[in-house]
Design a protein around this nucleic acid. Sequence first.
DNA 1: TTTAAATAGTACTAAAATGGTCCTCTTTAT
DNA 2: ATAAAGAGGACCATTTTAGTACTATTTAAA
Lengths: 155, 155
Amino acid sequence: MLRISKLTDYGTVVLAHLAASRSERVSANEVAAATGLGLPTVSKLLKTLARSGLVASTRGAQGGYQLARDAASISAADVIDALEGPVSITECSAHDSHCGLEATCSVGNAWQRINVAIRRALTEITLADLLRNHLPTPRFEFAGTPINVESAKHK
Amino acid sequence: MLRISKLTDYGTVVLAHLAASRSERVSANEVAAATGLGLPTVSKLLKTLARSGLVASTRGAQGGYQLARDAASISAADVIDALEGPVSITECSAHDSHCGLEATCSVGNAWQRINVAIRRALTEITLADLLRNHLPTPRFEFAGTPINVESAKHK
DNA sequence: TTTAAATAGTACTAAAATGGTCCTCTTTAT
DNA sequence: ATAAAGAGGACCATTTTAGTACTATTTAAA
């Protein structure tokens, strides 16, 4: 449910690597090698992240990428926005015939509010948080069945 | 970003209609007519919702559906779980070669925490909330550009 | 007891999103 | 000049999603 795309997930990994290489310029190649992701994929991600201003790029030989701002001021919401675009939680195909006059629009409104709530949560977590994560991994219930965090984590 | 599927959205509409028809048994046909959604789609949704226990079904002539419990005790999280299954926010294709020893796993952990936060938000909003929604529709910024709520709502 | 109105379950198909790769162009240090 | 980078697309395969259809089962009512 409500999952972010694999690309966004990878994007976080890439950004985390940049954050770890404190302000030193890193090439896409190096990032790929360090993270184990494919070069074309990493390259694509970095290009997108550069276009949306999260990383700064330097072209030419000895070029590369670095975080455009401090890791503490890049939120999870920023990353998602950059890689998945500002699409709202509901899409609403909006065929004119659909959605009579009843409770329907109310529902749309409610999803918007949910959206705001989620967004707040995403804004509160920064890249810096992602790095200092020697917190105990919380075990939590998910739809009744407990999720095995191991299998959900990057291996 | 982070959007729920159209089906889940429709599911909410369907549930809202059931909630509005206070405990009277409603057939899939009636729901379809009332909401403007296609009968096969509504039918499929109701079957799924029944299987996951959110609605109770009665078979045979004069049969139909009704909410299994009070609208106030059905959360948005319940609806999403029922219609999209308990998939975590990150999928993590987990090819063994990927994800070196570095910051990667940290990232996974962080997404899990984000997941918890989102889940809390989703659990706090109930079907009952979805119904009493004559709240002013909030206009809010989304990734810099203000979202036109009209186009995001059901039309 | 037959019939028709319903749901249950599942399979299938078309369309859209996603992930991943590749190619060409531009920039720049050496 | 050359080679090492990034910029920007185009492209295709795979998966997901949405929607439909079909068959079986249940049950109220004629």
